[in-house]
Amino acid sequence: MTSLTKQILDRARVILVAMVAAFVGSAFAQGNLEINTPTIAALKQSMQQRHAALAPHYSSGAVGLAADGTIALRDASGVPMAQRGQVNALVAAENGDRAALYREIARANGHPEWEADVRATFARRWIDRAQPGWWVQGTGGWARK
């Protein structure tokens, strides 16, 4: 083997090792979205506390999971008149938190323009993971799971 061939082979090996190292390095940089910010933690906390008050309304069908990642008062008839204002306030507060959550996840990852995609992803997962008996909004309208 000439020394030139040997040199070329050595260099090729160096480049190959470097490419593998760079690929492994960049693979680690991807794969997760940043969701550990103080704002997101506070929103999760607030939504978790509110969930205890909302859960009976999901079960009764008064409140359903909408296709756009929000929740909606879909049938107020089962809610006593005296409680309707309270349910409306719960729904409005929850939707405020959800909008802030989608916006904040997009922003925390350096892409505010991802907000609509984040919202669509959440909309699908809230509905997929809703408990049996809850009302969810699909392409064909409201349906009970």
Binding site: Q30, G31, N32, L33, I35, I40, K44, M47, Q48, H51, L101, I105, H111, W114, D117, V118, T121, F122, R125, W126, R129
Partner: peptide, 22 residues
């Protein structure tokens, strides 16, 4: 990353839903 990382977003959504719905 200009393209939306759908799988990572789904994972993040599931983690948050786990917490909110306990």
């Amino acid at each position: 990353n200009i393209y939306f990382p759908a799988a990572a977003a789904e994972k993040a959504a599931d983690r948050i839903i786990d917490e909110v719905w306990q």
